[in-house]
Design a protein around this nucleic acid. Structure first.
Lengths: 244, 244
DNA sequence: CATGGGATTTGATTTACATCAAACGCGCTC
DNA sequence: GAGCGCGTTTGATGTAAATCAAATCCCATG
């Protein structure tokens, strides 16, 4: 069974991290060595199923994912849950907690993962000295707002088929940005989790994926997806179908 | 017809603004007079239907609403639109634009309104000197993320009835926080706009409101709403109905 | 005050998706 | 390798909400 334990904490420096391009793309010239030390953060490992943080927990740090895959979810008191995102290497997570000093959602590892813990008070302190870092922090926060608006558009005005196509294309782009194949990848999450994220039931997810496969757009076997035609899939995201 | 013109720009100081509690609740002791001058911003008036900003416009400033009512919406290239929020006095708007230096949505006045323009570069500059302001900015950004997550939960896992009840209760709370009646208020937006925001069609909004009225929960006449029983309405937000 | 156009309500019908249900497949552990 | 449980697929049926349509209301304007 899953043991949500934290393995092997380790201090690391952002300057030496190969994900800097994705998570903290600042101009290095702004950073002298002393300042870099201030940003040094602690690396933790999480097993599949482990909680990075829980809703309600006191806010201390943001987390940069180094390797692995997470989901975030909010729980309604009724027991209903809504997956609010899937996060992969290079992405920053935990920003919802700043507003109330407590985490507003759960973050759970979908595979064995490593994260850098970034103590937020130190981040604020340092960003007062480094305008570039300050600007970057603002951009990250704002980017999250824009991402959420996109999901609102998706949930509010797209049909099941479109949502799923948009979802696959989004994953595709993000894998591509990390140097992986944009057309062949593993889904780390269950149909149920995809459904929760996209506002549909797991059966509908399954059926729609089967339809895509039937139409020759993708091949799906268990959790591995192969997209045969990105353009055709893209055309699914849009009004009903004006078959070209 | 609407003329989206800007009327009567005027310089004002935050120190003298009666909305400070809602939009910039900092400890005044941190601010000396000189710093206050730096935060002085420009007041603009907008007529109903006027654009505060348009999607794609260059990002310069955040805006604090002093009086009035706005909606924000994102447009899909297909012409589909999604209302992403309704903003009222004391709320800050425009934060989605920070990430790309361009506005990601339209902001449109739903009634004659006044806003304070807060040049963002000056805000960043000042927040490097004032940790309290810095912290406040971070909180505002994060609060927007939390708000969006709530809407995702609403759109992804609630039924029409629940969404509309949650919507009315949200308005109720926000009016109450501003010293207005929580049980009697005007809707500034059309059924169509409510529907876009809540992911349903205007007919469904109308029908559901009629149902609420039929159940004696509210009285609705045109755009004026009276909530007769906040608790009962609250109970609508939840799983199907375990009638108490 | 009359007129016109958009907003709203309400009804009839359709439909996309949910629900219920059963079978299958895959990865566990024993 | 047998047995079990979870995740997934697929089918049959039900239903909430969309769509289509028409009547009414309300405000703006001449």
């Amino acid at each position: 069974m899953q043991k949500p334990v934290t393995l092997a904490p380790l201090r690391v420096a952002c300057s030496g991290c190969n994900l800097r391009e994705l998570c903290m793309p600042m101009d290095l010239s702004d950073l002298d060595m002393e300042q870099l030390d201030d940003l040094t953060c602690i690396k933790h490992a999480y097993q599949r199923g482990g909680f990075l943080y829980r809703s309600g927990a006191k806010f201390q740090s943001l987390y940069a994912i180094r390797t692995g895959f997470f989901k975030t979810q909010v729980l309604h008191e009724d027991g209903r849950e809504q997956v609010t995102g899937f996060q992969m290497a290079g992405e920053i997570i935990g920003m919802d907690a700043i507003s109330s000093d407590a985490h507003a959602c759960d973050a759970i590892a979908l595979e064995d993962s490593e994260v850098c813990e970034i103590p937020f008070s130190r981040m604020e302190e340092l960003s007062r000295k480094l305008p570039t870092l300050q600007r970057h922090l603002h951009r990250i926060l704002s980017r999250e707002i824009v991402r959420d608006q996109g999901i609102m558009l998706l949930l509010g005005s797209m049909r099941a088929e479109e949502r799923l196509a948009a979802f696959l294309l989004n994953l595709s782009q993000r894998f591509a940005a990390r140097g992986y194949s944009p057309t062949s990848f593993y889904l780390r999450m269950t149909r149920q989790e995809i459904g929760s994220y996209l506002g549909m039931k797991l059966e509908t997810v399954s059926r729609t994926l089967s339809n895509f496969q039937g139409a020759g757009l993708i091949t799906i076997r268990n959790k591995s997806v192969e997209i045969h035609n990105l353009q055709k899939l893209q055309r699914f995201v849009g009004p009903p179908q004006e078959c070209v």
